[in-house]
């Protein structure tokens, strides 16, 4: 297998436990470069945890993660991250441009302040998400969709080869969703790899070309056409549901997905 082309994201036998309870069990993942991948699964399936452990934010109990063949710590500059929108306080006293420039902090390094170049790159990223007119706005004045665009712009200035996004469509209006999808597809055609935690089963086929079905363990991962099957979906949602309360909702959305 070492002769194969190098994987953008490679996860081997990843097990993550929280207070001695497994959240992810022995996950294997091989994501080739240049795909747009959905990570799908019921609530409590460990989707966010998977992303966070790829980013090294969560310490795994076992297993390893490789980005383009090397551990994350050595490949940081290759990875961009879009956290959940709700994870920050949007009343924080700062401007849109300022938030976007944070994507450059890793490149700028310790103590040095962002300069004109960083500012220009941030503006370019804002233009890509069509938020350039909002550059000096205070972030609390943004709508949900605009906040999400700002987070995307922040990831864009990271100029990464691998992007990990946690529910970028959460609480976003239809126009923004379309714009974001276009952007993600643009990233893919630039040869970048994008992994997205996604909730809406109905749009998986339309938006993505690769999918990982997750429910504490990895059910299946691969091209949407091969992997996104009824059987696998049942395995993901019906059989091993981590929290029984959510199972009803998930079954509902599942049957919606079947209608397609």
């Amino acid at each position: 297998m070492d002769n194969e082309e190098i994987k953008a994201i490679r996860v081997d036998d990843l097990t993550v436990a929280y207070r001695d309870k497994p959240v992810l069990w022995d996950i294997d993942l091989n994501v080739p470069p240049g795909v747009l991948m959905a990570i799908v699964g019921p609530n409590g399936a460990g989707k966010t945890t998977l992303i966070k452990s790829i980013l090294g934010l969560v310490k795994p109990a076992a297993g390893q993660v490789l980005i383009y063949g090397k551990p994350y710590q050595q490949q940081r500059s290759l990875v961009g991250y879009v956290p959940q929108r709700e994870s920050v306080d949007w009343d924080f006293p700062t401007s849109v441009l300022d938030v976007v420039m944070m994507g450059r902090y890793g490149i700028i390094g310790w103590i040095r302040r962002p300069g004109r170049e960083d500012r220009e790159l941030a503006m370019q990223a804002l233009e890509k998400v069509r938020m350039q007119d909002f550059a000096n706005r205070q972030i609390s004045q943004l709508s949900g969709g605009q906040q999400q665009r700002v987070f995307l712009a922040r990831a864009l200035v990271q100029d990464a080869k691998v992007y990990l996004m946690d529910e970028p469509f959460q609480g976003v209006d239809a126009t923004t969703e379309k714009a974001i999808v276009e952007l993600l597809q643009q990233l893919r055609s630039d040869g970048r790899t994008v992994a997205v935690v996604h909730h809406d089963l109905q749009t998986v086929i339309e938006y993505f070309d690769w999918v990982t079905l997750l429910n504490v363990r990895s059910i299946a991962s691969g091209p949407v056409a091969e992997v996104f099957t009824d059987e696998n979906l049942h395995l993901t949602y019906a059989g091993r549901v981590a929290f029984s309360r959510e199972s009803k909702e998930q079954k509902n959305s599942l049957s919606d997905g079947d209608k397609q």
């Binding site: 966070k52 980013l55 090294g56 934010l57 710590q73 940081r76 990875v79 991250y81 956290p83 994870s87 920050v88 306080d89 924080f92 700062t94 300022d98 938030v99 944070m102 902090y105 890793g106 700028i108 310790w110 103590i111 040095r112 302040r113 962002p114 922040r154």
Partner: peptide, 22 residues
């Protein structure tokens, strides 16, 4: 002042900061 940028990152979005390697 010296850690201005870092403290801002810490206060606004510490996980993102962590992903950048701070």
């Amino acid at each position: 002042m010296v850690f201005w940028k870092e403290f801002k990152l810490l206060s606004f979005d510490s996980e993102f900061g962590s992903s950048l390697g701070f």
